[in-house]
Design a protein around this nucleic acid. Structure first.
Lengths: 94, 94
DNA sequence: GAGCTATATCGACGGTTGTCAATGTATGGG
DNA sequence: CCCATACATTGACAACCGTCGATATAGCTC
């Protein structure tokens, strides 16, 4: 694996290598419409609103979450296939 | 996903969420006998020997690598199935 | 417009991380 | 025993990270 590819992949792995961000991804992907807004995510994680926004931004910047603003709310959803790419790296044939 | 499970999983994801450690795992799993010693890994990563030992220890502590000392050399190999567990979390993040 | 609400951003704080130089520990050869 | 080799450990350092409180921005309602 090249140093450049390792650097790029590590950015995405770092994004999900946090317990709260793992739970955010889990909460969003298991929600009704496969999306959630910040106000839905603050309470189950027991974190402040700025902290949740911060974590969501990291996941969006890493290309794992998609952010869509509708009215006052910001809805976050999993980018299709994003997690599959990372899973593929871990199951890669030697 | 419970906070406890997220915490445990994040420890393993943190272990591979580093470019040099990703390359270590890649180098080991693609080597001839699926194992490598520290002296084989120092040069391709362009890192000092203490730094490589440090990264390998993190991967061993996370349960991703197995360490076996034979004579003066320490051989590291991938723990069977360890990466598949992480890949499974990403493909079905309930 | 004023006021409220949802979200983002900023600044600061303690804690963690990656790296290196120096040193320690074990193993094998002579 | 002496010494070289392979690896681990320690201590230090700057950089980064997660969290919070305060504040800013944007959209809705009246």
């Amino acid at each position: 694996m090249s140093a450049e590819r390792a650097e790029a992949l590590s950015k995405q792995f770092k994004a999900i290598a946090d317990p709260n961000r793992l739970r955010l991804v889990s909460l969003i992907s298991s929600s009704a419409e496969n999306e959630a807004c910040v106000c839905d995510l603050t309470e189950p994680l027991d974190l402040g609103q700025p902290t949740v926004s911060h974590h969501l931004k990291i996941l969006v910047d890493a290309g794992i979450l998609h952010r869509e603003k509708r009215g006052v709310w910001a809805y976050f959803s999993i980018v299709p296939g994003a997690l599959d790419v990372l899973a593929g790296v871990l199951t890669e044939p030697k």
